[in-house]
Design a protein around this nucleic acid. Sequence first.
DNA 1: CTGAAAGCGCTTACAG
DNA 2: CTGAAAGCGCTTACAG
Lengths: 356, 356
Amino acid sequence: MRSTSARPRATIRDVAQAARVSPQTVSNVINAPDRVRPDTRTRVLAEIERVGYRPSTAARGLRHQRAGAVGIELNVSSGGGDVGALLVGQLTVRAPSYGVHLVPFADDEVFPMVEAYRDMVRRHLVDAFVFADTHSGDPRPGWLLEHEIPFASFGRPYSHPELTCWADVDGHAGLTLAVEHLVERGFETVAYLGWPLHLEDPAVAEDRHAGWVDATASLGVGGPSGTSDQELGAAVRAADALLDELGPGDAVACASDLLALGVLYAAAHRGLVVGTDLGVVGFDGSLLARRHGLTTVVQPFRDIADSLLGIVRDQLAGRPSPQAGHLLRPALAASATTDRTGTSTAYPQIPSLTRR
Amino acid sequence: MRSTSARPRATIRDVAQAARVSPQTVSNVINAPDRVRPDTRTRVLAEIERVGYRPSTAARGLRHQRAGAVGIELNVSSGGGDVGALLVGQLTVRAPSYGVHLVPFADDEVFPMVEAYRDMVRRHLVDAFVFADTHSGDPRPGWLLEHEIPFASFGRPYSHPELTCWADVDGHAGLTLAVEHLVERGFETVAYLGWPLHLEDPAVAEDRHAGWVDATASLGVGGPSGTSDQELGAAVRAADALLDELGPGDAVACASDLLALGVLYAAAHRGLVVGTDLGVVGFDGSLLARRHGLTTVVQPFRDIADSLLGIVRDQLAGRPSPQAGHLLRPALAASATTDRTGTSTAYPQIPSLTRR
DNA sequence: CTGAAAGCGCTTACAG
DNA sequence: CTGAAAGCGCTTACAG
């Protein structure tokens, strides 16, 4: 039968008794080692190691009046894509380096979201928050500022343009990478499939579009452009219209992987062989891109996680805010959709149908 | 300039003073309301509400010798699919109903995974664990049992078949749903695309296969079957071979949404119109399925989350283990790939190419 | 360099 | 029904 209560863990007193010092000295060994004589320190450290002692998070939190945790809002219902999960993964991996752990939470469908934030704070469960999906009517930045609760957002907080507590991918740099890569691979004209500017995240749409405009202008490879909402059906239709103006040897750089998938389908319709006939580059580094062999601009989730955690750590330490938000450089992951040798495989592989 | 320190929150003493009772009475109002006279209770409750008092998690945890948290291992590097994120989302939503919060953690690429578990326990950060991706050589169940730490797994812990602390989707029921749905929609033969049994999760592969065998036998609609690893290229090839043996009006039930996507692509190769000519049903209820208009057997993530959290809550309370693991019924979400009217849209929509 | 004291916020017996 | 006491594990001044 499975036992149900865990064996009690070693406390600071156990370590102290075994090392024949007081608990305070053990504490000093951990928190201010230079205040302890080397030989004492060695003896205590050995004992800590032997019994596997680690300070209790709860006791420390109580004493410091700090939870040592960062709340992270999960967008459960929207389920837009898979990039949210990639960011959460990197935040989880990086959090220990900042001396914190993550506490995810989500709208419980009953109270408005701000209630969830308020409750986490009142219970002393977290010291700060990280969230994504910022948008113009977003009540979160205002509420958090008003209550003096540190936070950092993935994406600019549009409601408070003066804030610098955000990190985002450099969309301009990303599209420059995409265009340069396509030119390097020998594609002649680079078209663009982006989002309409009235979407919730206008700065992102603008940055990526401007990156394409500037890069194609400087390389002399500009082409037509189109827009589509972030939905596959709309993307296929917009891509289809775009392909009317393109020929073999041309390419499309896209504002997202989903839009790029739309281009793949529209190209398959026409019997174009993606990679050799038509270049396609997506944006996000999503699972979707990996699955379909899409060349994509990969969001630097690890750097973003470090920025966000660094921002809240500095705020908690009372350090001054940075001069500007963190705009982080993405990287390009080349795959089948820009492979002119046709060696690697993109999906859908429909063009072979036309060659039977 | 942004202020950096949050205003101190109300404590039990603040409430007690304002309500002119002792802190203990406030505690009783919260934890044992029947021990307090109704009028006192009302007065205290009003004060709690007025100042927005919530007990401190850290102080409670220290007193109870319990973190009130469940560790959840995130599979960051593998990045298999998007279903892991869906489970984490539902665990997050449901956790408050069990009086706990989640603490995600991940392999830090330096220590073996068990080190991460050990560290969480030593720091009193969590009382129990939930994890997925169980497999035969899995060291986690053994280690957790040995250290008497409660846990529950999504998927059977193969190394310890006697354990009942797991929840899983009922794959047999899921494939029965899939076959019944296809027959109801008028498809004549139902083929199967599944996984080879040597994969890491043999019981899942067997259950789903057996569900197809039994359901097609009882309805007299059996057809050929094939297997493929959980990878798109392999799935397309396996599906292509399967389609050699099928004709218009037939269907394929699949062990996963990714395998089903392979069928879509293989069908597009042949100019088959999925939905009207060929029925396809996936399994998982993944984002991939939503995006492509796949009819799919949806994993009951909310029920799974409830089962897992219920298991660890019972273990922590010292209640006896259940007689068996929790096998939960999935639901079918009908979409374009079984829509014989051709009203809804599946992607890829390549067949229209053949009709130009 | 080391240790005795106080207290972070809460709850659990226990006394009144 | 209500309150005074003790203690969960830790750390921060402070005294020695």
